[in-house]
C-alpha cells in the first residue's frame, strides 16, 4: 500500500499504524525506544531513592513535610484521564473519523496542559514556602530531576501532538500520518506509566515516610 495515497473510509485498513513497511518500522522502533526509556527512568528513580531526604541540615524540608495529597491527586487524575482521551482518539483514528480524533486529541492536550500547570504551581510552592530548590540539597536535586524529567516529557509530548494536529489539520488521515499519531499516543501512555510510579514512589511513599 502506498503511504501517500488518498484514503477513503472503505480502503482504510484494520491496523493503519502498521500497514506499510515504514509504519511497521516506526511502530517497532518506538516500542524499542520505550524499552530504553524504561531504564532511563529507572536510573532516575534509583537516584531519587538513594538521595531521598538526604539534606545538609536538620531544618531543611523532607519528603513528608513537602508533599500534599490533594494536589498530587488532582495532577494524577488529569494525567490518567488524558490517557483515556488519547485512547479515544486512536479509536476514532482506526475508524477513519478524523474530526473526532482531532477533538479527543485536543482534549488530551488540554488535560496535559492542566497537569503541567499543577506541576509548575507545585514547584513554585516548594521553592517559595519550603526553600526546597534544585540546589538546596541532594534531595532537592534528585527530586526536581526525576519529576522535572517527567514534566519535560509531558511538555515535549504536548508540542509533538500539537504540531501533528496543526500539520495535518487540513489533510486528513493517510497511511503516512496515521502511524505518527499512533506513536505519539504510545508516547503519551508511557508518560502516564511513568507518572503512576512517580505518584506512588515519590509522593505516596514520601508521605508514608
Amino acid at each position: 500500500m502506498q503511504a501517500e495515497e488518498k484514503m477513503t473510509y472503505e480502503k482504510w485498513p484494520a491496523a493503519p499504524e502498521k500497514s506499510t513497511l515504514e509504519a511497521k518500522n516506526k511502530f517497532l522502533g518506538f516500542w524499542l525506544f520505550l524499552g530504553g526509556e524504561t531504564t532511563l527512568f529507572a536510573s532516575l528513580f534509583a537516584t531519587y531513592l538513594a538521595l531521598k531526604d538526604k539534606v545538609p541540615s536538620a531544618d531543611a524540608a523532607l519528603a513528608k513535610d513537602l508533599f500534599d495529597l490533594p494536589l498530587t491527586f488532582v495532577a494524577t487524575m488529569l494525567l490518567l484521564t488524558s490517557s483515556l482521551t488519547s485512547v479515544y482518539a486512536m479509536y476514532h483514528m482506526k475508524n477513519f473519523a478524523f474530526k473526532k480524533m482531532m477533538v479527543w486529541l485536543g482534549l488530551t492536550v488540554l488535560l496535559g496542559l492542566g497537569f503541567l500547570g499543577t506541576e509548575v504551581y507545585e514547584f513554585s510552592h516548594y521553592v517559595h514556602t519550603y526553600k526546597h530548590t534544585f540546589t538546596s540539597s541532594a534531595f532537592g536535586s534528585a527530586f526536581y530531576t526525576l519529576v522535572g524529567f517527567h514534566g519535560a516529557h509531558v511538555a515535549f509530548g504536548l508540542c509533538w501532538i500539537l504540531s501533528l494536529m496543526i500539520r495535518n489539520s487540513k489533510r486528513g488521515l493517510s497511511l503516512y500520518n496515521a502511524p505518527k499519531f499512533y506513536v505519539a499516543s504510545l508516547y503519551w501512555h508511557f508518560i502516564d506509566v511513568v507518572w503512576v510510579f512517580i505518584f506512588t514512589v515519590v509522593y505516596l511513599m514520601g508521605m508514608v515516610g
Binding site: T39, A42, V87, L186, H189
Partner: peptide, 29 residues
C-alpha cells in the same frame, strides 16, 4: 491502552520486559 495484548507485539514485549528487568536491577541496587 497501549494494546500490548494484541498480536504483533512479541518484539515490543520482549524489549519492554528486558528494559523492566534492567530497571528492577538498577533500582534494587
Amino acid at each position: 491502552f497501549m494494546h500490548m495484548s494484541h498480536k504483533g507485539h512479541e518484539a515490543p514485549q520482549l524489549f519492554l520486559f528486558s528494559g523492566v528487568f534492567v530497571a528492577i536491577l538498577t533500582v534494587l541496587t
